[in-house]
Design a protein around this nucleic acid. Sequence first.
DNA 1: AGCCTCTTTTAGGTATACCTAATATTCTTC
DNA 2: GAAGAATATTAGGTATACCTAAAAGAGGCT
Lengths: 138, 138
Amino acid sequence: MRYKTIEEYIETIHVLELKHGRAQTGMIAARMRVRPPSITEMLGKLEREGLIRYESYTGATLTASGKAMARELMHTHKVIADLLEILGIDRTLAEADACQIEHHVSKETVARLEEFVKFARADEGTTDSIRRFRTGMP
Amino acid sequence: MRYKTIEEYIETIHVLELKHGRAQTGMIAARMRVRPPSITEMLGKLEREGLIRYESYTGATLTASGKAMARELMHTHKVIADLLEILGIDRTLAEADACQIEHHVSKETVARLEEFVKFARADEGTTDSIRRFRTGMP
DNA sequence: AGCCTCTTTTAGGTATACCTAATATTCTTC
DNA sequence: GAAGAATATTAGGTATACCTAAAAGAGGCT
């Protein structure tokens, strides 16, 4: 089995911080399906890397640098998921694929894909090729 | 630094087998930037998993199952790279991104993206939205 | 306040993908 | 065909992301 990446930890902490103000060991462990002692250990590493603030028995919050990483990941995720949906992939599947792909696309490519997503959205309502493809129209 | 995946080993062996009839430890090591002893070790693992045949001091070739994996990876790679190129990404960058993304897309999504690529190719020469987007025409 | 429960951390261990140094095998060239 | 060069394997070590079991800390209830 594959190990979780730092990015996955940061995303999880980000979501939990939004929902509960901070990310506690147990919550992270449950979401990521990793045992609490491994989380404690990883939180130490993330803190040493300057991505989170971490207080024992209390929980973690993202630093500015951690937030920047989370923001970028969320943005990439949205671009990829939107693109896949525009190309006719079911939203649930698009989200699942985006979760993986988001960690492996270059910034340059994301920028270009974002342009395409905007372009395609602007074409909504016309009967041009993207729409034809999506709807299966002749 | 990230570890190489089994899929990356299989792809490398596939390429070398095409070019030289078999993949030798040193060639794999050079391509993957991993030291020869690590390659020897990994070839043992790949053989135990039934993906390659491996003879000491001679080299490795893919089994049917290894070939199937290689074929699928190459197909996914092509679909992703073609898609990115259609969306205006430089071929070199598209190839580089495809190298990473190919390991993280679901089969279902690849199938749908392949349809889109075919559709867009069929539209070549027309002045519809995909083309407009790619060329930056009004 | 004190006890009990739940959560977290500490201690110690495993698996694995890498590495370097030393040894073994194969290839080349005379 | 033997010596030396090139390549591969073996032996032994490191780092790290996980784990389980045991100890420590925090919060609720009487």
